[in-house]
Design a protein around this nucleic acid. Sequence first.
RNA 1: GGAGUCGGCCAGGCAAUCGCUGGGAAAUGGGCUCGGAGUCAAUUUCGGCUAUUGAGUCGGGAAAAAUUGACUCCGAGCCCAUUUCCUGGAGGAAAGUCCGGGCUCCACAGGGCAGAGUGCCAGGUAACACCUGGGCGGCGUGAGUCGACGGAAAGUGCAGCAGAAAGUAUACCGCCUAAGUCCUUCGGGACCGGUAAGGGUGAAAUGGUGCGGUAAGAGCGCACCGCGUCGGUGGCAACACGCGACGGCGAUGGAAAACCCCACUCGGAGCAAGACCAAAUAGGGGAGCAAUGGCGCGGCCCGCGCUGCUCCCGGGUAGGUCGCUUGAGGUAUGCGGUGACGCAUAUCCCAGAUGAAUGAUUGUCCUCGACAGAACCCGGCUUAUCGGCCGACUCCAUCU
Length: 94
Amino acid sequence: MFEKPARRADSFFTILYIDSGQPTARLGLAIAKKRVRRAVDRNRIKRIVRESFRHSQLTLAGKDIVVLARETTARTDNARLFLSLQQHWQGLSK
RNA sequence: GGAGUCGGCCAGGCAAUCGCUGGGAAAUGGGCUCGGAGUCAAUUUCGGCUAUUGAGUCGGGAAAAAUUGACUCCGAGCCCAUUUCCUGGAGGAAAGUCCGGGCUCCACAGGGCAGAGUGCCAGGUAACACCUGGGCGGCGUGAGUCGACGGAAAGUGCAGCAGAAAGUAUACCGCCUAAGUCCUUCGGGACCGGUAAGGGUGAAAUGGUGCGGUAAGAGCGCACCGCGUCGGUGGCAACACGCGACGGCGAUGGAAAACCCCACUCGGAGCAAGACCAAAUAGGGGAGCAAUGGCGCGGCCCGCGCUGCUCCCGGGUAGGUCGCUUGAGGUAUGCGGUGACGCAUAUCCCAGAUGAAUGAUUGUCCUCGACAGAACCCGGCUUAUCGGCCGACUCCAUCU
C-alpha cells in the first residue's frame, strides 16, 4: 500500500490511494503522534475522517485509501476539515 | 457592604436526523450436540460344511427384533451471522507515570553486606512518600498557612569576600600602666605586659541587661532573663511548665541538601503479566509400509550419490478466546470516634474498545462553554483548567 500509491494533498491532509479491485472501498488512518500531539485531537480527526468516508464510500468503491494528518490539522475546525475531505473524495472518484 | 481563608459540588442544556460499540429480547438463516420418529444399507439372530477353540465358508432371506452407519422430518440446548426493538457508553484530572497496593509469572533454608527509600509524635489504612489529630519552628492583625522537622558530644572533610581572628579561636585600632625593670628635665617616657568594655568586618565574633568590682577590664562576683544537666509535674508520645536543685556558661558556633552515623521499611519483572485453542510452511520425535524400492551416473552388473509414503505426538508462528471489569465498589440511614476512618443494615450494577467505540450535522436557548480522551484494577501525590454554585470561618467599615 505504501509502495506505489497515487497521492494528493492539501494543507490539512495527505491522501494515498490505489485501485484494489475489491467491491467496497477501504480506509486506513495514519494520524501520527508526532504531527498531532494531544489524544483528544487525534480522536477528533479520526472520527471526522471516518464520518466523511462513511457518507462517500459508495462513490469510492474499489479504492484503498490512506489518510495522513498534517501539523495544521489539529488546529482546524470540523467544518473546514469536512470540506477538505469532500473535495478529496470528489477528486478521487473522477 | 468590602477584603480574605478553608472545604465540597458542577463541567453547556434541549430537540431532530445519521452513525459506532457493550448488554438484553425477538425473528430469519447456518453450524454443532442431544432426544424422538421414519427410510435405506450392513451385520447378527436360521440351516449346512470345516475346525480342539476362536472362527471361517456356503445357502436362505417371508416377517420380526437388536446393533451400527447414512439421510430426512420434528423438538430442545449452545454457537455464529443479519435485521428490528429496548438499554448502557470517558475524567476531575482519564494526564505526568512520581509513590503505595491488589493480581500474574519467576526466584526464595536462615543470617549478613551492598543498594534504594523513609525520617518530630500518635492514629487511620491493604499499603504509602498519603490522610487525620497533636507538638515544635517560620509567616499572617486573624480565619489559616508553610516546613528534607533524627544525629554535628563516632569519624573524615567544607566555609568565597571582608575581617586581627571563622574552631586548636584570635588581638588591628583602642583602653590601661597597678605589680616588675630601666631612664628622667620629676611633667612623664620606654620595656615587660594586662584587657576584650568601645570601634570596625561579616550571614555568623561564643550569652544579654543592670549593679558591684578594677589600673583598665572580664561570669571576676551578684540579681533578673537566657542556656545546660539531673529531678518533679502534666501528657500514650512528640513535647510543655511563672516547678525544684545544681552548673558560671570558651560547656555545646554553622552546615547532615558533602560524605557519614542511627532507627525503620524494601526479592525481581510486569496485562506485550499470564492461561487456553490453534491453520499454512519449515524443522523435531515415534509407529507402520516400502527397502531385490525410486531417481541420477551407465549399454548392463558391481559401485557411488540423492531420496520416500501414510498416520500419530509434542514445541511453536499468524490468528482467535480468556484475563476484562462485582470492586479495599457506589448511594442512603444508624451507631462509634475531635477527625482521618471503622462497623451494621438496606439498596444499586455504573465504559470495556483492540487499526482501538463513547460521535457527527442542523436548529434552538443561555451565563457563550476551560483543561483535556479510559487501555488490568484500585488508593494517593503532582501538574493543567473558562467559569459557576453551596457551606463554614476571619478581618475592616456601617446601621440597629
